[in-house]
Design a binder for these strands. Structure first.
Lengths: 276, 276
DNA sequence: CACTGTGTTCGGATGTACCGAACGACGTTG
DNA sequence: CAACGTCGTTCGGTACATCCGAACACAGTG
């Protein structure tokens, strides 16, 4: 009765209490750093206090939550730090990309990030801030909008039209600013342009005043493994410099492809791009 | 029948499926980076394949796991990166300590780390490697032995004798090397020595050939908030330099105490140490 | 003292989480 | 080719764990 058709359809294979426990973790993560009280959590979770207590206690004994007394407040546990660190080390992309990101940040004086392709979404897993640049609030691991970010569009541009349509149908084309692309036709032509340019741009489509340029890289299996992007203030970037910046990002992405043992964009474009 | 008295005694308030799901995450985390197959997981978890599938699917839809096809293998999901990043940012200690760690690493040319005090255990949440030093495999978020690490002993030294006895009784004094302190009496006198010195040492007690020095710092509430430690190869460190190194680490910890608005060790020692 | 807010305990009915068995595919072995 | 070993997936049925609601102890506030 809570979600009629919100979650997955194949709900046969989902464990209710576990799904609730994960939502509980997310609620705590969204809350303030001091943690939240049990009653608050119960209200937000839509469960009784006793149920919430049992879930929280179980999660706490696994280290996922941390009950900081007095007045038991639950905050995120240290096990998550460990698991996050392990996850990053299991995706060696971060370590591989860091030198490339550092050089890119130095060259462009912009914040450089690398995203992996996770179920249609770009997920940023490593970041190198530009020298003296404004610090953007870009938490690691956050899913970004595929249609409204440079990295997302760079990744989408490597997929077939049917896949792009499926992803967009699944998650929608929500407007983030007045310049966000919200119809599939415009998006597809923007992707075509990105394909021929070798890089994608986000011109205030995700946040006002913010400009991004992204380029995809490829793994040893030939598929798109992720994308690199740089982020900056639009007014700092003259329009005639966009192409030059795009080529710089494109080269950085090619370096990553090389490190991964994959094709560079140009060759990938020749071998796989034709059949799209 | 699996654990007769292994887990907590108050098992009334623990949700079985959630506890199992958390164990599943740990199993995946311990496994190889390529992920593990469903049958493997089911065997190791001690549950049927269908149950494991339901748990894994639920965790995957929450982003905690990631099913990388083909041959569905489960690895850790990107949500853990995000949650770990949020957890670290909610404990601002890492950001506060980083400059101090950097200076300490530069001064001592050793790997410097900061640990928080979590239920009797030291948990390292940030690390700065020394210049050109050997990279130690020290994953973030890992609990270390309280009795066999410099940071652990530095923290224990700030507690009362009864608390130390309780912690040791709870978790044991396992021998990690031939030099590990394994009886409570020796440990207590080592802690007394650390108390008067202002720093604690780990002389090959956790790993052969490794030498550590640690010192505790204090938060605004006057209690021990954590410890800073440096790690190096024992043969690189002449015996007569230990005291100098200890004072250096002690000073770094005092700086952290100051940043946290807490007492420095000397003053803390005067106000609280007497009643121990 | 009544009243609202905590966190905690407990019993009992509902429903779900769990198992086991069976199925279709794939690869290897005789 | 048949037999066998895996693998992941589906489904039905029931024991039992989960969840709720009510009641408790306690703290702060009018």
């Amino acid at each position: 009765m809570a979600e009629p058709a919100d979650e997955d359809v194949a709900d046969r294979y989902t464990v209710r209490s576990v799904a609730r426990a994960m939502r509980l973790i997310e609620i705590v993560a969204d809350g303030p750093a001091e943690g939240r009280s049990l009653s608050e959590l119960a209200r937000e979770l839509g469960a009784s206090k006793s149920t919430t207590l049992a879930l929280a206690r179980t999660l706490a004994s696994a280290g996922m939550l941390r009950d900081s007394r007095p007045g038991p407040r639950y905050s995120l546990g240290t096990a998550l730090i460990r698991l996050g660190d392990i996850t990053k080390s299991q995706l060696p992309l971060g370590d591989i990309c860091r030198p490339v990101l550092s050089r890119l940040a130095e060259l462009t004086k912009m914040t450089s990030r690398v995203a992996i392709y996770d179920q249609g979404y770009p997920v940023f897993i490593e970041r190198v801030d530009g020298p003296g640049s404004v610090r953007f609030h870009t938490p690691l691991g956050q899913r970004e909008e595929p249609h409204a970010s440079a990295a997302g569009k760079a990744i989408l541009a490597t997929l077939g039209e049917d896949q792009v349509r499926a992803i967009c149908a699944d998650h929608g084309l929500a407007a983030r600013t007045s310049r966000t692309i919200t119809d599939i036709g415009s998006l597809l032509s923007a992707l075509a342009a990105a394909r021929s340019d070798g890089f994608a741009v986000d011109d205030e489509e995700d946040a006002e005043g913010i400009f991004c340029v992204g380029a995809a890289f490829f793994g040893h299996d030939g598929g798109c493994a992720g994308a690199i992007s740089v982020t900056g203030i639009k007014s700092d970037l003259p329009a005639w410099k966009v192409n030059e910046l795009g080529r710089t990002v494109r080269r950085a992405a090619d370096q990553v492809s090389e490190l991964l043992g994959g094709d560079r964009y140009s060759t990938w474009n020749l071998t796989a791009g034709a059949l799209a």
